[in-house]
């Protein structure tokens, strides 16, 4: 692995790490949603350092190029992130429903006239 590539990946990872940590610090990102991105930030240089392992893995799954294995890994990672978000959105929807119902139930409007 050329030194330039290693340096580039390290910089990319550092930027990503800083960004995620800074967002958490400013309370723009909650810890529970940060962990996947922290994982990604750490995984990027790990791939560079552990390049022989990636080659071995490429042979294991029967791919020709290590790069295509990396692409696949990135795609799977993004899919998992999105499914994770879908479950969170589902939960939020349920919570919004419960809240709206509780608001409606707390102010029953009585009839204006009784016949």
């Amino acid at each position: 692995m050329p030194v330039r590539q290693v340096i580039f990946m390290m910089i990319l990872s550092a930027v990503l790490l800083t960004l995620v940590v800074e967002l958490v610090r400013r309370r723009k990102l909650r810890e529970e949603y940060a962990w996947l991105w922290l994982l990604a930030a750490v995984a990027a240089p790990a791939v560079v350092v552990g390049w022989p392992l990636v080659r071995q893995f490429t042979r294991l799954v029967g791919a020709d190029e290590p790069v295509s294995v990396l692409y696949l890994g990135a795609l799977v990672f993004l899919m998992v992130v999105n499914i994770h978000y879908s479950t969170k959105i589902s939960r939020l929807t349920e919570q919004v429903k419960e809240l709206a119902q509780a608001i409606a139930l707390s102010h029953p409007q009585r009839p204006e006239q009784q016949g």
Binding site: V96, A100, Q101, I103, A104, P108, Q109, E112
Partner: peptide, 21 residues
């Protein structure tokens, strides 16, 4: 209300199932 019903007003549109519930 005028017609004699108790009215529960949902603050946002939730859908027929949630309204019944």
């Amino acid at each position: 209300r005028e017609a004699g019903a108790v009215v529960l007003s949902l603050p946002i549109n939730l859908g027929d199932g949630a309204a019944r519930q």
